[in-house]
């Protein structure tokens, strides 16, 4: 027997369906407690509700050389130590001493140098699906939404993190990924903009102190102190 359903009932039942859907986040809800990796910068971690997700694709749009990898130092070094960190198509030759200084175990690092962006995407997908990787770092400026979706699915199904580095000029369309960030340097501090995050609002202008190279502060400080102090004992008056 067919009971004719009124249009109002139908919309209500659909709404109820959406209400229960676990993948739809509503702004009135509190952030879902997911597994997260802390980045180590308090302000940023708060804005991200406890760090970056342990799986999925994170897009970082920044210039190369502003400490964009160093920002993820804690993620790269402290978690899932027995799994690989794969660098796919890095902008230049990756240096082992730098990795050691960062605290990454060199045994767990592989560098993949594909000839084309297409091959790079293939390699990234294979790495994400292999269940052997902790994190895949991919440099790509020609990514499309479909490819990003593929990587997102591969990463989230296999509990792997994918850091996608793009140049700030190529950050065009919004991608179906976990987290979208832009980075730049202002007054020797790192400014992070959260363009998009799952289960949360975008946040802009998060300023965090950032130090990713050795500097001359020690010498400068010594010079400053030297000026203030009395003439040294051994100097001839």
């Amino acid at each position: 027997m067919n009971i004719p359903t009124s249009p109002i009932n139908e919309t209500r039942s659909k709404a109820a369906l959406f209400d229960k859907h676990p993948h739809i986040w509503r702004a009135r809800e509190k952030p879902v407690s997911e597994n997260k990796f802390l980045l180590g910068a308090r302000v940023l971690d708060e804005a991200l509700h406890g760090g970056i997700a342990t799986s999925g694709v994170v897009r970082i749009a920044s210039l190369t050389g502003i400490g964009e990898i160093t920002l993820f130092k804690q993620v790269l070094t402290t978690h899932r130590a027995h799994k690989l960190r794969v660098f796919i198509k890095p902008p230049a030759q990756l240096q082992a001493p730098w990795l050691s200084n960062l605290g990454v175990d060199l045994e767990q690092v592989i560098v993949v140098l594909p000839k084309t962006d297409q091959e790079a995407l293939w390699a990234a997908e294979q790495c994400l699906k292999s269940a052997a990787c902790h994190c895949v770092l991919l440099w790509n400026n020609t990514m499309e939404a479909k490819a990003a979706r593929r990587l997102q699915v591969a990463a989230s199904h296999n509990d792997t993190l994918c850091l996608l580095f793009t140049s700030p000029h190529h950050q065009g369309a919004s991608f179906p990924i976990t987290l979208d960030l832009t980075l730049h340097i202002r007054d020797a501090k790192l400014v992070v903009n959260i363009i998009k995050q799952r289960h949360g609002w975008p946040v802009s202008d998060i300023v965090i102190p950032h130090s990713w190279t050795p500097n001359n502060h020690a010498i400068q400080a010594a010079m400053q102190n030297n000026k203030k102090t009395e003439p040294a004992l051994h100097s001839v008056i």
């Binding site: 140098l113 390699a123 294979q126």
Partner: peptide, 24 residues
């Protein structure tokens, strides 16, 4: 899984495409 992955990458992209950086 790691060995399989490296084998796969090398087969598709060539032997010199997958590197293990070491301190020299």
């Amino acid at each position: 899984a790691q060995k399989q992955l490296i084998g796969k990458l090398k087969a598709k992209l060539g032997d010199d495409s997958t590197l293990h950086p070491k301190a020299g």
